[in-house]
Design a protein around this nucleic acid. Structure first.
Length: 171
DNA sequence: GTAAGGATTGGC
DNA sequence: CCAATCCTTACT
């Protein structure tokens, strides 16, 4: 059970497309003891541009959001509620801030639990998905899965932007 | 410097 | 319903 590591062209695209295309793809995590675990992505959310009030980049380019302005293919992690590391993949091209949040994968439900399962921490900020030995994403060559779109979770503060159906769930 | 709040979870 | 827990951002 192995596939091709996703490349530059995959991530340097619009986050709405990347979020949809990531469904069914497989996160591979290689731990310090060289053991590997694989997690099939089942739920994603897109965050796109400074206009998107739910996107962290709505506050502009800061130390925290810097990596979102990089070209697609890097990891964006941040600590939320002082406890949970959220896993995101940067998308789009240089200087356009966008990312996809992985909300569920494998048997793990919920982004906080996923971050704990993957043993994420601040050292994953900016990790390059194209050459990392710790985390990357593979395409096992399966058919594109069926999915549904819904509003994003936990961003009620974003006003009209909270209504956009930028969350995608296998189904 | 200080304060407010969060892309969540689990326990009461 | 609400506390945990700490980083980021904004600013009386």
């Amino acid at each position: 059970m192995q596939g091709e590591r996703l490349d530059k062209a995959f991530f340097e695209a619009d986050p709405l497309l990347v979020a949809q295309n990531l469904l069914g793809k497989v996160i591979v995590r290689q731990f310090d003891d060289h053991s590997k675990k694989r997690y099939r992505i089942s739920e994603t959310e897109a965050y796109r541009g400074e206009d998107d009030l739910a996107c962290h980049a709505a506050k502009g380019r800061t130390a925290r959001t810097e990596v979102m302005y990089h070209a697609g293919g890097k990891v964006y992690v941040y600590l939320v509620y002082g406890m949970y590391w959220m896993l995101n993949f940067v998308t789009s091209g240089f200087n356009y801030p966008a990312a996809v949040l992985i909300r569920s994968a494998g048997e793990i439900t919920g982004p906080g639990r996923l971050g704990r399962e993957l043993q994420l921490d601040k050292t994953f900020y900016g990790e390059d998905l194209y050459d990392s030995l710790r985390i990357w994403v593979e395409d096992e060559g399966r058919e594109a899965p069926v999915f549904i779109a819904t509003p994003r979770i936990g961003i009620d503060y974003a006003g009209e932007w909270a209504k956009k159906e930028w969350r995608f769930v296998l189904g």
